[in-house]
Simulated scan of single mutants.
Amino acid sequence: MTVELKRNLPAELAQHVRIRGHELITDAALAEGGDDAGPSPHDLYDAALGACKAVTVMWYARKKGIPVDDIQTRVERDDSQERSGVYRLSAKLQIKGALTDAQLQELHAVAQKCPVHKLMSTVTTEITTDVERMP
Protein backbone atom coordinates (compact mmCIF):
# COMPACT_ATOMS: atom_id res chain seq x y z
CA MET A 1 0.00 0.00 0.00
CA THR A 2 1.19 3.52 -0.79
CA VAL A 3 0.29 6.75 0.97
CA GLU A 4 0.73 9.83 -1.22
CA LEU A 5 1.21 13.38 0.01
CA LYS A 6 1.40 16.65 -1.92
CA ARG A 7 1.77 20.16 -0.63
CA ASN A 8 -1.62 21.78 -0.17
CA LEU A 9 -0.93 25.10 -1.91
CA PRO A 10 -0.93 27.93 -1.03
CA ALA A 11 -0.46 26.79 2.59
CA GLU A 12 3.06 26.89 3.95
CA LEU A 13 3.16 23.47 5.62
CA ALA A 14 -0.15 21.70 4.93
CA GLN A 15 -0.11 18.44 3.01
CA HIS A 16 -2.89 16.81 1.02
CA VAL A 17 -2.90 13.11 1.97
CA ARG A 18 -4.34 10.37 -0.22
CA ILE A 19 -4.78 6.86 1.17
CA ARG A 20 -6.55 4.48 -1.21
CA GLY A 21 -9.66 6.50 -2.13
CA HIS A 22 -9.59 8.66 1.00
CA GLU A 23 -8.29 12.19 1.23
CA LEU A 24 -7.46 14.49 4.13
CA ILE A 25 -5.29 17.45 5.02
CA THR A 26 -2.53 17.40 7.59
CA ASP A 27 -0.88 20.57 8.84
CA ALA A 28 1.01 22.07 11.73
CA ALA A 29 -0.71 24.12 14.42
CA LEU A 30 -0.60 27.92 14.28
CA ALA A 31 1.96 27.96 17.10
CA GLU A 32 4.23 25.75 14.98
CA GLY A 33 4.02 27.97 11.89
CA GLY A 34 1.20 26.15 10.12
CA ASP A 35 -2.34 27.18 9.31
CA ASP A 36 -3.97 24.46 11.44
CA ALA A 37 -5.85 23.29 8.33
CA GLY A 38 -5.94 19.73 9.64
CA PRO A 39 -4.53 17.42 12.27
CA SER A 40 -0.76 17.36 12.67
CA PRO A 41 1.30 14.26 11.89
CA HIS A 42 1.55 13.64 15.65
CA ASP A 43 -2.24 13.90 15.91
CA LEU A 44 -2.63 11.29 13.16
CA TYR A 45 -0.14 8.99 14.91
CA ASP A 46 -2.10 9.26 18.16
CA ALA A 47 -5.43 8.85 16.36
CA ALA A 48 -4.15 5.68 14.68
CA LEU A 49 -3.73 4.11 18.11
CA GLY A 50 -7.21 5.08 19.29
CA ALA A 51 -8.86 4.02 16.05
CA CYS A 52 -7.08 0.68 16.04
CA LYS A 53 -8.11 -0.08 19.61
CA ALA A 54 -11.77 0.79 18.87
CA VAL A 55 -11.88 -1.15 15.59
CA THR A 56 -10.13 -4.17 17.14
CA VAL A 57 -12.51 -4.27 20.13
CA MET A 58 -15.59 -3.89 17.90
CA TRP A 59 -14.35 -6.61 15.50
CA TYR A 60 -13.60 -8.99 18.37
CA ALA A 61 -16.91 -8.31 20.14
CA ARG A 62 -18.85 -8.96 16.92
CA LYS A 63 -16.88 -12.16 16.27
CA LYS A 64 -17.45 -13.46 19.82
CA GLY A 65 -21.05 -12.26 20.18
CA ILE A 66 -20.21 -9.84 22.98
CA PRO A 67 -22.96 -7.20 23.18
CA VAL A 68 -21.15 -3.94 22.41
CA ASP A 69 -23.58 -1.19 21.39
CA ASP A 70 -21.12 1.69 21.21
CA ILE A 71 -17.51 2.55 21.89
CA GLN A 72 -15.81 5.89 22.44
CA THR A 73 -12.06 6.23 22.65
CA ARG A 74 -9.91 9.06 23.98
CA VAL A 75 -6.15 9.26 23.55
CA GLU A 76 -4.16 11.68 25.70
CA ARG A 77 -0.64 12.65 24.65
CA ASP A 78 2.27 13.60 26.89
CA ASP A 79 5.09 14.61 24.58
CA SER A 80 6.98 16.61 27.21
CA GLN A 81 9.90 14.14 27.11
CA GLU A 82 9.76 13.23 23.42
CA ARG A 83 13.19 14.75 22.76
CA SER A 84 14.56 12.50 25.51
CA GLY A 85 13.08 9.42 23.82
CA VAL A 86 9.82 9.04 25.77
CA TYR A 87 6.44 9.65 24.11
CA ARG A 88 3.49 8.75 26.30
CA LEU A 89 0.01 7.90 25.06
CA SER A 90 -2.86 7.02 27.34
CA ALA A 91 -5.92 5.42 25.75
CA LYS A 92 -9.30 5.23 27.47
CA LEU A 93 -12.11 3.20 25.94
CA GLN A 94 -15.70 3.62 27.12
CA ILE A 95 -17.86 0.72 26.01
CA LYS A 96 -21.64 0.64 26.09
CA GLY A 97 -23.51 -2.65 26.20
CA ALA A 98 -24.91 -5.29 28.53
CA LEU A 99 -21.44 -6.55 29.43
CA THR A 100 -20.39 -8.74 32.30
CA ASP A 101 -17.27 -7.80 34.24
CA ALA A 102 -15.52 -10.78 32.61
CA GLN A 103 -16.45 -9.56 29.11
CA LEU A 104 -15.22 -6.06 29.91
CA GLN A 105 -11.89 -7.52 31.09
CA GLU A 106 -11.72 -9.66 27.93
CA LEU A 107 -12.21 -6.56 25.77
CA HIS A 108 -9.54 -4.73 27.78
CA ALA A 109 -7.08 -7.52 26.99
CA VAL A 110 -8.03 -7.36 23.31
CA ALA A 111 -7.53 -3.57 23.23
CA GLN A 112 -4.02 -4.06 24.62
CA LYS A 113 -3.20 -6.28 21.63
CA CYS A 114 -4.39 -4.11 18.74
CA PRO A 115 -1.98 -4.12 15.79
CA VAL A 116 -1.04 -0.44 16.02
CA HIS A 117 -0.31 -0.78 19.76
CA LYS A 118 2.06 -3.63 18.86
CA LEU A 119 3.67 -1.57 16.09
CA MET A 120 4.24 1.32 18.45
CA SER A 121 5.58 -0.72 21.34
CA THR A 122 7.15 -4.00 20.22
CA VAL A 123 7.99 -3.90 16.51
CA THR A 124 11.13 -2.42 15.03
CA THR A 125 10.14 -0.15 12.18
CA GLU A 126 12.77 0.31 9.51
CA ILE A 127 12.47 3.51 7.49
CA THR A 128 14.32 4.48 4.34
CA THR A 129 14.12 7.98 2.88
CA ASP A 130 15.12 9.10 -0.61
CA VAL A 131 15.21 12.74 -1.66
CA GLU A 132 15.30 13.70 -5.34
CA ARG A 133 14.54 16.60 -7.63
CA MET A 134 11.02 16.95 -9.02
CA PRO A 135 10.77 16.59 -12.79
Rank of each mutant, 00 (worst) to 15 (best):
R88F: 07
S80W: 10
A37F: 03
T122A: 13
A31M: 11
L104T: 10
V55P: 00
A109W: 10
A29R: 12
L107R: 00
D70T: 02
K96L: 10
K113A: 07
G33D: 12
K118L: 10
V86W: 06
E32D: 15
G65T: 08
T124Y: 13
A28D: 03
R77W: 10
V75S: 03
Q112V: 03
Q94E: 14
M120T: 07
A37D: 05
L104Y: 04
R77Q: 10
Y60H: 13
D101A: 14
V86H: 11
A48P: 01
K53C: 09
Y87V: 07
P41W: 03
K113P: 01
D36Y: 02
Q112F: 01
T73A: 09
T56N: 01
V110G: 00
P67N: 08
M120Y: 14
L99Q: 05
M58D: 06
K96I: 08
A111Y: 01
D69S: 12
R74E: 11
A47H: 09
L30R: 14
H117K: 05
Q103A: 10
A51L: 06
A31T: 14
Q94W: 13
T73P: 00
V57Y: 00
R77A: 11
D35Q: 08
D70W: 03
P115I: 01
L44T: 03
W59F: 15
V75L: 05
L107D: 00
Q72S: 10
K113G: 03
T56Y: 00
D78H: 12
A48K: 02
E106T: 15
L93M: 07
Q72R: 11
A102R: 10
P41M: 04
C52P: 00
L49T: 00
V123D: 15
Q72K: 10
G33I: 11
T56C: 00
A48N: 04
Y60A: 08
C52F: 00
L44F: 06
